[in-house]
């Protein structure tokens, strides 16, 4: 082991943070860039499913809340691109890789949002699952990522609560509104469980990521935690989670639950989800339509620089 490798190993062993200018193994740098970029892309693409509802939200209060939430997603994407840039990545290059389909984003955002109840269920289940995933990442061994995650987790809590409150309101409405909530829960429950990734047995990178302390719990541990959290919340709301195998197991002290359709996850990841094409086309259009603004701002700044060097 070289002296640099020893310093890196000691930093990880002592649970200290790796900082951008420290020496790190090339594989660690690459894995971190990929993880942070994929997370950033998810936040940016994640603006779309709910963004469509901003103009259609039923009251000024709901519009303002949704606008603030979607703005937060943009902010989270930018904190994360900032963290990726400390590793030598370039955010314009990362955006290009997203648009070209060379880098992924979370497959959850390839599902459609046909009713307003979807906005509530995304806040409750999708953001709830994201919080489960992200809270342990506040202790990621890579400093800039851990610090970005702390900011993000603080803000996600608002996202989850506004969603749950929206659903409570709808459940207190008409029979039709209650059906709408149940229908949205039926559609989002299984995809939310898939957000934690494949089962541990099929997750070959988990061991290395845990050794580097860039992952603190396995996919199955986090999935179990999410199920245990969600069951009493569903009960309080008065909805049924669409899993006939879901029941409390007093021996384990956890809920047993059914197996998600992993072939569906594979299909959506490889581009076969309902909205993959639409999401990327929208992101590409935003990039292309905004190009002249970025160029004009750069030209303006250059001209001012010439006039007042």
């Amino acid at each position: 082991m070289t002296a640099s490798e020893q310093v890196f190993a000691d930093t990880i062993a002592r649970d200290q943070r790796v900082e951008p200018r420290d020496w790190m193994p090339e594989a660690y740098r690459k894995t971190m860039i990929r993880q942070i970029a994929q997370h950033a892309h998810s936040e940016i693409i994640g603006m779309q499913p709910e963004g469509q509802w901003i103009t259609r939200a039923p009251s000024l209060r709901r519009k303002a809340i949704l606008l603030a939430k979607v703005q937060d997603e943009a902010g989270h994407g930018l904190y994360l691109y900032s963290a990726a840039e400390t590793l030598g990545a370039d955010r314009a290059d990362l955006t290009r890789r997203l648009i070209d389909g060379r880098q992924k984003y979370s497959s959850i955002f390839n599902y459609p949002t046909p009713t307003f109840a979807d906005v509530g269920v995304i806040g409750w289940l999708v953001d709830g699952a994201a919080i489960c995933n992200q809270v342990p990442l506040c202790r990621s061994s890579f400093g800039p990522y851990a610090r970005a995650m702390i900011r993000i987790c603080k803000e996600e809590s608002f996202h989850q609560r506004q969603g749950y409150e929206l659903l409570i309101t709808m459940m207190g409405g008409t029979a039709e509104q209650r059906e709408m909530v149940q229908d949205a829960v039926n559609r989002w429950w299984w995809p939310s469980l898939m957000m934690f990734g494949p089962p541990d047995a099929d997750s070959p990178n988990t061991a290395q990521s845990m050794a580097w302390k860039i992952k603190r719990h396995t996919n199955d541990e986090l999935r179990q935690r999410f199920v245990d959290m969600s069951v009493p919340q569903a009960e309080a709301l008065g909805v049924t989670l669409p899993d006939p195998e879901l029941r409390w197991n007093s021996d384990r002290g956890h809920h047993d639950f059914g197996t998600p359709d992993w072939s569906e996850l594979q299909r959506v990841i490889s581009g076969g989800g309902l909205c993959n094409t639409e999401r990327l086309a929208r992101r590409r259009a935003a990039d292309e339509d905004g190009a002249w603004v970025r160029e004009a701002a750069a030209a303006h700044a250059a001209r001012r620089q010439e006039a007042h060097p």
Partner: peptide
């Protein structure tokens, strides 16, 4: 607190 990109 972090970084960002801007024209000026």
């Amino acid at each position: 607190v972090g970084s960002l990109r801007a024209a000026d």
